[in-house]
Design a protein around this nucleic acid. Structure first.
Lengths: 236, 236
DNA sequence: CACCTTAGAATGTATAGACATATGGCGCAA
DNA sequence: TTGCGCCATATGTCTATACATTCTAAGGTG
């Protein structure tokens, strides 16, 4: 694979930064110098530098110059895959059981639920995810009927609501909160584990623009599941 | 803030995709049509479309056209901030206590440690993070002296090794594994909590290119700490 | 010495054109 | 009918130029 010129300029600078030859806050050569170095037009240099800026590796200041960004404020990429897919990838047989399905109003005084409902009703869906027949996670999900009226008619017996939503409802923003808590009585019973067992709690909310779509709490058996986040491209 | 023309084109298409007006696999207008629509040159249209392609929202096929990408494989951004900074941001006083500092060889038979050591010695650093004087997390860190010889002379009494590394050692790749486990005897003692308490376990390894730099295991008091991951830009 | 003005430097945006290269469909020939 | 080759289409890359916007530093003025 022969790199185009702007890609070559981009990777040259990129490796200079990653190897430490260019330190954070260092000033990069200005566009005219790079034009000389690579014997090309300014647009080509500009394309390379713009790409680096978009990737957050450098910072460009109009009138001042281009500078190496400070060591990554390190945000990492957290893959939040669809559970059935994830379980299958780990070589297990996935199962889902719908435990509770009820239409109800938002609990009075519960600000979260009221925001989600937006004055209309909510669909509550409790379910159990399993791998090879063993309980993996319980989830309680609330879906805004205002945002997703179609879900009232969806068949959610065999496919988990997360998967259904993923396929039918586009979203623009999501936030996931990850913590650890001991299993309480009901969670423990459903996961077939002693009360107090360490669980990974994943809470996620999704929005489409500013409209709230769904909120879910998933309790994973701590020893049976983990999340992986990555920074950098190559590692498998 | 007035958007430049290529930004306007970009956001127009972006919102058409996110709102569902353009479905996955749909074909976008070709560049010449967009030139007509926006009365601009091809380079301007190209810049907008290239940005969308770089962001993964669309896919461009030379000779064929541009197409909406399939629904986001949704990866989210996980902020993994420096602990002192994070604790301060939550309004607490951060404290760190170095418990163990020893130079040693990799444990024989422990493949992870041997890879990290690369034939040389390791620096083991155990420490306790606290917020407002209360234990927050214990960590055990191993640093490769082959990769970071300078850390042998660093003063790690007052500042945690993670912070020192962040400031002195550039890295290119990292992987974080998140799970939940019950506190064993030693962890429980250090965190001043009963044995079996649910803990958030964060394991992280970092590399510079293919050279391993450090591996760390952090046990957070489950009820006192959580991680947040986000997709989408606007929410605070 | 402190402050303000100004010229130059550097990036941001946009144009119009040129040639390169991959794709897919259409028409012709076996 | 099938298969091959050609060509229109669409994107990829690059050039040379122009003007706008913003920052920095130099130099002059009070």
């Amino acid at each position: 694979m022969t790199l185009s010129l702007h890609e070559r300029i981009r990777t040259d600078i990129e490796s200079a930064i990653l190897s430490g030859k260019l330190a954070p806050e260092d000033r990069l050569p200005v566009e005219h110098e790079l034009m000389q170095t690579y014997q090309c037009s300014r647009m080509t240099v500009n394309k390379a530098l713009s790409a680096l800026a978009a990737a957050g590796l450098i910072e460009r200041r109009k009138g001042a110059g281009s500078f190496v960004g400070r060591p990554h404020a390190h945000s990492m990429i957290l893959d939040v895959p669809d559970l059935p897919v994830e379980v299958a990838k780990r070589g297990h047989v996935y199962g889902y059981q719908l435990l509770v399905r009820k239409l109800r109003a938002a609990a009075r005084g519960n600000a979260e639920e009221e925001l989600l409902a937006g004055g209309r009703r909510l669909l509550q869906l409790d379910g159990l995810h399993s791998a090879d027949g063993a309980p993996l996670a319980v989830e309680r999900r609330l879906v805004s009927l205002a945002a997703v009226p179609a879900i009232a008619d969806a068949d959610l017996e065999k496919e988990p609501p997360g998967t259904w939503l993923l396929r039918h409802v586009p979203w623009t923003e999501a936030e996931t909160r990850i913590s650890a808590i001991p299993a309480d009585g009901e969670i423990a019973r459903l996961l077939k584990t002693p009360v107090g067992t360490a669980c990974l709690l994943v809470e996620r909310q999704t929005w489409r623009s500013s409209e709230r779509i769904t909120a879910v709490r998933q309790y994973f058996l701590g020893t049976a599941y983990h999340l992986v986040a990555r920074f950098g491209s190559s590692r498998p």
